[in-house]
Write a protein that binds this DNA or RNA. Structure first.
Lengths: 209, 209
DNA sequence: CCGACCGTGGAGGTCAAGATCGGTGTCCAA
DNA sequence: TTGGACACCGATCTTGACCTCCACGGTCGG
């Protein structure tokens, strides 16, 4: 019985141990937020000691940023697939909103790191979240400019409005309406709200001074 | 000239001194966030000593909650006035969105405490923000149920979508589009987005425009 | 004129949490 | 089998921030 591969606390390859630490850190950060989370908690959750944490990540912030990047990438992959799946802008909006709801429903809770981070004052975090939001808003703005004659600035503002609509509604649905309304129905409702709002704009928008 | 009332550091009535402390604390919290702000900074900013802080507020959290409550009340007063100013639901939506943009533009920056708090994990903070959001969403949901045949749950979800739309768009406008688009135009754009979205739902009254 | 009092100011205590060092067990190779 | 080296763990250090104690100056009553 010299083999102890199945033992969770045994020696693991570096990448596997790193993934384990990341998973544990995500659980703790999601449950408690950045500031309330302790490296002790993360180490205990991962079943390793604190020095092992610092063998993989140079600091608490580094660990958090790795998880934040993964979460943003997860969200990006979700809506990007929806955008490329069709050229029908209405369906594109539906897919994007669906992606937000799916992201929020993810059992790992990565949305807490992207949408509800308590480290938003940190420049690195703020910058990444801003960039992610801008990408989504621009994607929606692109859809808008195809269907309306609004200026890029106006379209981008509307895009951020659509983004906020999806984000906040998805979070409210998850917390307060998940048992009453299915994910698909909720997303469809919000997508209808957004699409009707967008498609109501005139094709040629005269600037009103 | 025995009285030195005009001297800032002199004796002040308790309420006035408290207001001064609150103003200084708001500046520091808005600029740095809760965690990065120090009681030393607040005391220095207010021109008082730390014991004076603790004569007025029992803890840092207490001080923050006082400011958060004031900010929420400011937002509430803004949109509540707009809702009562008319019975035209379209105008109500416009006024509500305008209130969000005005709140975000407030030079004291109270919106940072309500919309971008880095203490959102604290139960007291989360509860107050949730309650404030729910109030707005319910107010909008009431408007929605008047014009559509949606269920209360559906209307509340749409209301939170409208809320998020206004909130996120207002923040983006403040940070990235303030010089290009006026506040009124931006708010009108978002209000149009939301109103067209709402009025497009079935069983709605025919649009007057 | 003088003494007592009250509020201010700066220095310090405490504690939590992030970031590291000696000891140890285990695995591999000759 | 056995020696060596590597990776891990308990215990520790330090920093930083929230929260109170000793000396000082101005004011009011006798």
């Amino acid at each position: 019985m010299t083999r102890t591969d199945s033992k969770p606390s045994g020696r693991l390859p570096k990448s596997e141990r790193r993934a384990q630490v990341l998973a544990a850190a995500q659980e703790v950060f999601v449950a408690a937020g950045y500031h309330a989370a302790g490296m002790d908690d993360i180490a205990e959750r991962a079943g390793v000691s604190k020095p092992v944490l610092y063998q993989h990540f140079s600091s608490k912030l580094d660990l958090y940023l790795a998880l934040l990047d993964a979460g943003i990438e997860e969200l990006h992959a979700g809506y990007a697939a929806g955008l490329r799946s069709t050229s029908d802008n209405k369906v594109r909006v539906q897919r994007t909103v669906q992606a937000y709801f799916a992201f929020v429903e993810d059992p790992q809770g990565a949305f807490r790191l992207v949408f509800e981070s308590d480290l938003i004052n940190e420049a690195a975090v703020r910058e990444r979240v801003d960039r992610a939001d801008l990408a989504v808003a621009q994607a929606i703005a692109h859809v808008i400019t195809e269907d309306t004659g609004l200026s890029p600035q106006q379209a981008l503002l509307l895009g951020s409005g659509m983004l906020g609509m999806s984000q906040v509604a998805a979070r409210r649905w998850l917390r307060h309406a998940r048992t009453e309304i299915s994910r698909e129905e909720a997303a469809e409702l919000i997508a209808s709200l957004g699409w009707r709002g967008i498609s109501g704009f005139p094709l040629s928008h005269p600037p009103e001074d």
